[in-house]
Design a protein around this nucleic acid. Sequence first.
DNA 1: TTTTAAATGCAACCGTGTTGCATTTAAAGG
DNA 2: CCTTTAAATGCAACACGGTTGCATTTAAAA
Lengths: 133, 133
Amino acid sequence: MDAATTLKKHDLKVTKIRLAILDALGKTELAKPYAELQAMLAEFDRTTLYRTLLALMEKGVIHKALEENGESYYALCSDCSIETHVHDHMHFKCTTCGVVQCLDLPKRLKFSAPGIHIDSIEVFAKGQCSNCN
Amino acid sequence: MDAATTLKKHDLKVTKIRLAILDALGKTELAKPYAELQAMLAEFDRTTLYRTLLALMEKGVIHKALEENGESYYALCSDCSIETHVHDHMHFKCTTCGVVQCLDLPKRLKFSAPGIHIDSIEVFAKGQCSNCN
DNA sequence: TTTTAAATGCAACCGTGTTGCATTTAAAGG
DNA sequence: CCTTTAAATGCAACACGGTTGCATTTAAAA
């Protein structure tokens, strides 16, 4: 599915920066840091980038994979919508080369604690990616 | 163990702000957001707070429990040192009242993926705490 | 083609992260 | 108890991302 179709499916107008963001995030499971996105999209105002990222997240097109030391990483969603954000994957950062990627989880995680009700769980792992070990 | 002893054990000089931070974080498993810490420690320069938090983290006295929307939450470590930071607990945020706490994990988590070597895993859950459900 | 709600660009402000440097202080040694 | 000194602190300054208001532009529906 091309970028314009993706946007329409999520009730988003097709605009230049939205196409550019989807293009920048590619079709991979790799997450990009905000600073890199901004550099790739320097032709647009950073406020527009900010609001566009918000809109794409709200509509379930992209998600914030992780936040580390004030740096946010963004990645495409696989199958989210404005109603349901489901992420059955973990986020992995290679401490050697710095790449951040979404990895499938073998099964849905379940945790429990007395008196507590858990709605969502995020898993963030660090280590060495296949290129770096 | 009192705060001064804790500091000495981790090769840290006993200073006013360090005692105040340990006092602010209490003896509980609750994590405090940066803004709250800063408000409680308004008598100190924020640069000093910044550097003190860095020092306490490096020496294994406190840890950054989580980062969410640019807000960092800090909590005491249970048994860390400058050499080993071990956190066999997950971080939980109540989406109703906002409290963030460290919860014991039933067992050490293990994940694997082809070609990837995982060093550390963090788990961040959201839901309702025992007071809010 | 016209219309209009949405998107964009610009200005401005805030909070946190970060560094350099001068001053103060904890604590070790005499 | 003093002296000494490396470490800690306070202050100034800058960077950067988050955030909002408002005027202008534009996508896309009519």
